[in-house]
Amino acid sequence: MLLHDLIGLSGLLFPLLAVATKGSTGCNSVHPPLVIPGEPSQAIRFLTAHGGKRSFNLHIPAAYQAKEPVPLILAFHGKNQAPTTFENETQLSNPAFNDEAIVAFPQGVKEQWTGDPAAPPLSQVNDLLYTSDLLDYLQATHCIDLDRIYAYGFSNGGGLVDLLACNANLAPRIAAFAATSAAVYQDKALKEPLFSLCPSRESPVPFLTFHGTSDPVIDYDGYRTSDGPSWPVQNRMQGWAERNGCPNGAENSTIQLFGGKVQKYSWTCDDFEDVVVHYRIEGFGHGVPTTTPLDNDGQRYGPTFFNATPIVMDFFRAWPLPEPLPELSQDTRDEL
């Protein structure tokens, strides 16, 4: 695999935050010459604004035109997993699953992310800042639809996606989130509080998750996770429903699939239909749900009943960033 040295200029980064148009400033830019549209990803190094060089793998869809804004998916691998492994498991570079979105597969330091019990504290490695820098870089170098930026992760990468959704600076830039077998730890398992620091925000935080009841790495109920207690999956999803405007204890709608072996839970909150969705997979282990064998089937207990990626893509398509509310005139404010 070829590794291209593409150095992002930090001066390009921060003005992007004020861009009001749908397309990013990278529209009409030339993509890296050896990243072939329609082919599997190639590795890229870039200079971050917060900590030297980092890397990611980049996939560009075959139909990409630099003048037409397209969606962007940030796809975060699991702990001790290469970006190319997550790419292969999700098939996000396969046009049968994704023929529209640019996909960046970020590379964690030592193949792990902020949010893992073994990860350094934020003062040493801050993957939230890395994600912000990566977004700035991609928006400056590619034609990204700023209303359709998404994050999807597995295991430790799924935990990072949860932290992105909690972050006041990053969550408003990302339209929807998805995770499978997400590693979401309670404070006592970590070097510092992370997942407990998760306030609500006014706009919706669409979140889709998948988790197996027999996950041997991140226990579904949280108590038997070997490297420290994790959040029980149902509790965490109820928390996301509450952050989206559902009252405490609000009931979800439940659909039984595959003879009751998969339960689909959906919450409609604050008039946002199915803004939080969770698939509970009976007997499934730790991995990406697919109907094909994978190398980690010793932990995944797969193949399983369905492919997650088409569900993720449909969920993302349903959730662009909402239009900002119009500014009220002073006369209107006086009338209220």
Results as ranks from 00 to 15, higher is better:
residue 62 A to N: 08
residue 147 D to N: 15
residue 184 V to D: 07
residue 271 D to Y: 10
residue 99 D to V: 07
residue 21 T to Y: 04
residue 95 P to Y: 10
residue 217 V to S: 12
residue 276 V to Y: 08
residue 204 P to E: 11
residue 46 F to W: 09
residue 39 E to V: 05
residue 320 P to A: 04
residue 261 K to Y: 11
residue 274 D to S: 14
residue 247 P to Y: 00
residue 31 H to T: 12
residue 78 G to I: 00
residue 240 W to C: 10
residue 321 L to A: 10
residue 75 A to D: 15
residue 239 G to W: 00
residue 102 I to Y: 05
residue 284 F to E: 01
residue 213 T to G: 09
residue 1 M to E: 14
residue 87 E to D: 13
residue 51 G to T: 07
residue 20 A to R: 14
residue 70 V to C: 10
residue 110 K to A: 14
residue 284 F to Q: 11
residue 157 G to A: 08
residue 47 L to G: 04
residue 123 S to H: 05
residue 214 S to I: 00
residue 259 G to F: 02
residue 124 Q to W: 02
residue 117 P to S: 05
residue 304 T to H: 12
residue 6 L to Q: 14
residue 31 H to S: 13
residue 219 D to M: 02
residue 251 E to P: 02
residue 175 A to L: 03
residue 215 D to K: 05
residue 235 N to H: 12
residue 91 Q to P: 00
residue 294 L to T: 14
residue 59 H to N: 09
residue 254 T to Q: 10
residue 169 N to S: 13
residue 100 E to V: 13
residue 238 Q to W: 02
residue 37 P to R: 04
residue 248 N to T: 15
residue 5 D to Y: 14
residue 41 S to L: 03
residue 296 N to T: 07
residue 293 P to G: 07
residue 26 G to R: 03
residue 195 F to P: 10
residue 303 P to T: 11
residue 128 L to I: 09
residue 36 I to P: 02
residue 336 L to Y: 12
residue 109 V to M: 07
residue 27 C to S: 06
residue 140 A to C: 09
residue 334 D to T: 06
residue 255 I to S: 11
residue 71 P to I: 04
residue 225 T to G: 12
residue 16 L to Q: 15
residue 114 T to V: 10
residue 20 A to S: 15
residue 118 A to P: 01
residue 66 A to Y: 02
